[in-house]
Design a protein around this nucleic acid. Structure first.
Lengths: 210, 210
DNA sequence: TCCATACGACTTGTATCTATGCTGGATCGG
DNA sequence: CCGATCCAGCATAGATACAAGTCGTATGGA
């Protein structure tokens, strides 16, 4: 056994994953004992995981009653999209003011797009989705603001859960998504934050899943 | 005894307060046992508080070593101010698009300003600061986006800690601050988000403490 | 002197135990 | 038949016990 990862960490990772991928639906009422039995540990590490999940907003703990997996609120998708737009747009605006940052960003994005194109060709949906997340994460990070970048990460997690919950619909074909990413990258290379903002707005509206 | 508030909640509130008001300086190494003895409870609730504080970014837990109060990073004040500007500006932009929201916002802000003016007259620094926080919180909430509003709250907490850490300097007199708030409110009443943005930028730059 | 190691103090990680709160259903009185 | 009450079962809150990791220091040998 490799105890570099504690039992509490394992419990946390497992439960969080089940929430994010939709195995544990919103509104489900779970208890510490359940998971303790399931994961073969005592209730203590499970409890720690619950507390952490509550702090991150995934669960609500009701004293002496149990833990409720927080359901996705009706407004959540709008709110997440608004927030993502805001952070990404502001980041590109900042990056565009410094030619070095803009160039580095464009270069990194080109690399990620290459990976995504490969994934499309090899029909590796997993890698495709991963590249998609990386693309936007990299954009958000270009604002050179750790707080906002971290916040953006939480938005991606929320979105991941939402897309897992709802039926996963591809309004457009994957290659359309790729083309939009390419257009976004061009706007960055051109240091045109306004064009980027307009393209991004369309991008997220048309394809709420990414 | 009124156990409506659990021991863990109390421990959390106390420790968090000590971090935010600077009693517990950044970089301090603390242990569960210390606080357990101090607060007269067992390690369990203290541990829960530590976990929660870590999840919220106030502490870093080192396995078998102790807990470190996370120091304020050198970039943090810039990052917090950038993020606050971003969220408030976006919120007002949204609110300005709906006349009802803008009117309600202007009205609420006027009320808060009244409180703040009273506080200034009675020299109640505490109430003055509270009104200040409320003013900006209300602005942020006008964006009608719960996720962003909650995020804004965390920014205020971070800022509170920073201003507690550094010497609290008032670059301008309190009444200048009040005048700026009044100007901001007028911009909102006029549904002029661009003017608001410009005023706010100056406001936070001149007075990094609020 | 220098280095390796053994030890002790301190810390967290996890399990377990007790007390208490909540809830739903059975029971009793009307 | 209906509502108040009681109680068993379940879940958590918190305390405690114990195991194990880490570091500083003392100690003994080369």
């Amino acid at each position: 056994m490799q105890p570099s990862e504690t039992a509490a960490d394992r419990a946390y990772a497992v439960i969080r994953e089940r929430i994010l991928d939709g195995t544990l639906a919103g509104g489900a009422l779970v208890s510490e004992g359940e998971f303790a039995a399931d994961l073969q540990l005592s209730r203590t590490p499970v409890r720690e995981a619950f507390l952490r999940l509550q702090a991150e907003g995934w669960m609500t703990l009701y004293p002496k009653r149990g833990a409720l997996v927080r359901p996705v609120s009706p407004d959540e998708d709008r709110e997440v999209l608004e927030a993502r737009l805001l952070v990404e747009t502001a980041a590109v605006h900042t990056a565009s003011a410094a030619s070095d940052d803009a160039a580095a960003l464009a270069e990194d994005l080109t690399g990620i797009l290459e990976r995504q194109r490969d994934a499309l060709n090899t029909r590796d949906a997993e890698a495709f989705a991963r590249a998609d997340v990386d693309f936007h994460q990299r954009v958000a990070a270009s604002g050179n603001n750790g707080i906002l970048t971290a916040f953006y990460g939480t938005l991606q997690d929320r979105q991941r859960r939402m897309t897992a919950t709802t039926v996963h619909r591809y309004d457009g074909a994957p290659h359309l998504l790729l083309e939009q990413h390419e257009a976004l990258t061009r706007a960055i290379a051109d240091r045109d934050p306004d064009a980027f903002a307009a393209l991004l707005r369309r991008h997220v509206r048309e394809n709420r899943a990414t």
